[in-house]
Amino acid sequence: MRLTLRIWRQTGPDEPGAMTTYEVDGISEDMSFLEMLDHLNEELILGGDEPVAFDQDCREGICGACGMVINGQAHGPERTTTCQLHMRHFNDGDTIDIEPWRASAFPVVKDLVVDRSAFDRIISSGGFISAPTGSAPDAHATPVPKAAADLAFENAECIGCGACVAACPNGSAMLFTSAKVVHLNVLPQGAPERESRVLDMVGTMDAEGFGGCTNTGECATACPKGIPLPTIAAMNREYLRATVKGGKRRTG
């Protein structure tokens, strides 16, 4: 396959960036999107140019590192991560636009790499449980109802990729934050911090400069892990419950 790529190039956080056009040839339809970029980078390096910087790690769809916006869609046209997107979903001769996640809470570091540490700060403000140290408890010491276990698991699938923020017209992190809150709030292990968790994580999310939710649903459409939109409603319910119960924040 022969492709025209228009890629956002930016040398550093405070540098101006621009869409730059590259022609690549010899792309196999069995390549993943990242392998296609590797192929481009090899040519750039051989030609003495700076390779395109992008985030990646596992290349098997579980780490969430490989975020980029392809033709205006987070992770491209398929509902999966960029590393799991294959070139067979494109046609010979296509022009493909590749851009970094756009959100003021995710500043560009270089080219397609953005700083997603705002997510880490949301997690560290409440995305944990308090467990006694010492020997591991018996696996069945705390019974978990099946429905709660399933719901927790569905939300635990979130890999923190940030596609929801990138896709949202408001740069909102509600889908990510709600997946993390609901994951722990439905489990008995998460019960001691049930109120402070949601208040703290929403507070941190706001402080990081993410936008609010207008329920357009772009996030859930973009999410490679299928976190559904009603998860946001579930977090709102937790937030209102914590507020009415006079829950206290641990931080902030």
């Binding site: 756009r102 408001n170 357009t216």
Partner: peptide, 24 residues
Amino acid sequence: LSRRDLAARPQKYAHQRKEQSYAT
């Protein structure tokens, strides 16, 4: 909230999709 939402997404994508923020 609208002001905050616009500030949270200051830079548009070069490749725009039409339907994206229809409801909002």
